[in-house]
Design a protein around this nucleic acid. Sequence first.
DNA 1: TCTATTTAGTTGCATTTGTGACGATCTTTT
DNA 2: AAAAGATCGTCACAAATGCAACTAAATAGA
Lengths: 155, 155
Amino acid sequence: MTGKQSEAAMPPLVLEDFIPYRLNKAAEAISQRFASQYRDEYGLTRPEWRTLATLGQFGALSATAIGAHSSMHKTKVSRAVFSLEQRHWLKRKRDEADRRTEHLELTPAGRKAYQHLATMAHGYETELFARLGERGAAELKAGLSALEAYYRQGR
Amino acid sequence: MTGKQSEAAMPPLVLEDFIPYRLNKAAEAISQRFASQYRDEYGLTRPEWRTLATLGQFGALSATAIGAHSSMHKTKVSRAVFSLEQRHWLKRKRDEADRRTEHLELTPAGRKAYQHLATMAHGYETELFARLGERGAAELKAGLSALEAYYRQGR
DNA sequence: TCTATTTAGTTGCATTTGTGACGATCTTTT
DNA sequence: AAAAGATCGTCACAAATGCAACTAAATAGA
């Protein structure tokens, strides 16, 4: 026997301690709650919400740019754009210089929905921070920043 | 003008600061890297790896227990179990007291694969911690713990 | 005891997602 | 300027996921 463990074999991996596992569960749980808000209120899917939020923040972007920024697959963006267009929440404009790309922009209706959802998002986050406590919130942000620095230029 | 902002309107929500968004992107990026390892080496899907890891850690569980522990949908577990069974990595045993439930247990082959994957997982995490730095890793863990405490007893 | 309800796990079906190929357009090379 | 290659967005198809219905078995209620 080599010390630490006595009779029972220690499991080679404790999932509750494994960072990718914990991150996934946490992300899913936290997103779920907010997702049900925009789903209940507007019937939006996650890719649709992401697209809306990205356009709301940046003004006018190509589909490719949206995907690059928010890590969504080409086709996911394409479909979300189509769906938002159906709602008349965004309109497309051909780039006259490069006629392959189209610039996507929110309509007034889209912007209005965005404003509302952004407010809900802030509310959600405020509540989250309150429950995490000053300390927990600060640690989480710092930890996420470290992670982002890692995988941003990572590998 | 009300101070802070000058000419351009501030976007109502900055995605790079929004916790659910950051968590999702981080979780996806971090998981992706490890997922490609077990995918390339064994052709495992995520639900399969999760099921394997859960059984490896806990020894023998019902499908329901696996799903509850790792937040996977019933049918996801059912299909992962089927697939692992095809590989002869686990076997089912009827519970004689309650003949609806089956106890799932890794075979020697399954255990061997698990050992290997668990080793890879540790390696991955070790490298991750190294890149995050002592500080970043500690903050991330603390932040995750705070989150877990939040959503565990949820609402 | 007989019925109604709950639980474990699977399956069919619809929805969502990713892959690969495509037409159109732009860029680079020769 | 023609040919080859890259990029933008879409679509058909295949794979993965979730939902609802189902069988079998246990439990609770009458």
